[in-house]
Design a protein around this nucleic acid. Structure first.
Length: 275
DNA sequence: CGTTATGTTCGATG
DNA sequence: GCATCGAACATAAC
């Protein structure tokens, strides 16, 4: 369930329950989540040590270890972090678990195993190696940076928002909300947007994500915490536009489904008009 | 049985 | 070079 707002929730959970606590054991119950990293290498690196601080960059969570080095977590489509006290409460799809001295557990859950956990020496180097653009909520990521990242691009607005190299943190779900709030049809080509529309898009990108984080909403859970007038609680077949009541439409873009209001989101100059 | 699913990568194609 | 599409990964729910 991970887009930027979800990962922010995971970060807060980890910060509240796992920082500064001695890691008594690391239990890898499905090594596939580590990719090529041998489980013993991770265990050796973490056991007996403590997490010092965490940082989120887009959909990635980076956790600094006392003494240097970072644990990196990415959640794929079905990953999450959960905390619990009694092993009887260990949730399903627990792939890797931290047991802390004095009690308490933190588990990385993932049904489909599409995410990854790893180690990194340096956070900035990791972000660069992953080819991630600026985090969507980084204050240094401003409108000028957004415009620069999109300059000359002819892709659709939806594709650009979801490109982690352009801006890190937005996925299929929240890109729909951002485009809805900006009144832009998902298939609108970027080169059809004038400066004002691009500024609107950037403003909604920030506002939608800030609001989701402030309200503690995710991309699947807690959608009812989003303000009235949000698309996401209605984002389903038979959903209706929260603004005008029209039935929502969908379109497919490289395997993903976009939901949009056919009346509130201008078609504008769209791509893919050949079919 | 078929379709769809919050992510990302890779090869093929236009 | 740019952009898109479909398949792949793994595991479900409907």
């Amino acid at each position: 369930m991970p887009e930027l707002p979800d990962v922010e929730l995971f970060k807060r959970r980890l910060d509240a329950h796992a920082l500064n606590r001695t890691i008594r054991a690391v239990v890898v119950s499905d090594a596939r989540i580590l990719g090529d990293l041998p489980p013993e290498a991770l265990v050796r690196r973490l056991e007996g040590r403590r997490f010092e601080a965490s940082r989120r960059h887009g959909k990635h969570l980076l956790v600094r270890l006392y003494g240097g080095g970072w644990l990196t977590l990415h959640f794929g489509m079905t990953g999450s972090l959960e905390v619990f006290d009694r092993m009887a409460d260990d949730p399903p799809y627990d792939r890797l678990r931290f047991d802390f001295a004095g009690g308490g557990h933190l588990a990385y859950l993932s049904r489909r195993l599409l995410g990854r956990i790893g180690l990194a020496d340096d956070a900035a180097a990791f972000v660069a190696a992953e080819n991630l653009g600026p985090d969507a909520l980084d204050p240094a990521f401003d409108q000028a940076a957004f415009a620069a990242a999109l300059a000359g691009s002819r892709r659709t607005a939806k594709a650009a928002l979801m490109d982690q190299a352009v801006v890190a943190g937005v996925g299929n779900i929240y890109s729909d909300e951002i485009l809805f709030q900006a009144g832009i049809h998902p298939a609108t080509r970027l080169d059809a947007l004038d400066e004002g529309r691009l500024a609107d898009l950037f403003g909604q990108l920030k506002r939608v994500l800030e609001t989701a984080v402030a309200e503690g909403a995710g991309s699947e859970q807690y959608l009812d915490r989003l303000p009235k007038g949000s698309l996401l609680p209605q984002r389903r077949k038979d959903g209706h536009c929260p603004r005008c009541g029209a039935g929502l439409h969908t379109l497919k873009a490289s395997g993903r489904t976009a939901y949009f209001c056919p009346r509130c989101q201008e078609v504008g100059h769209t791509a893919g008009a050949r079919d």
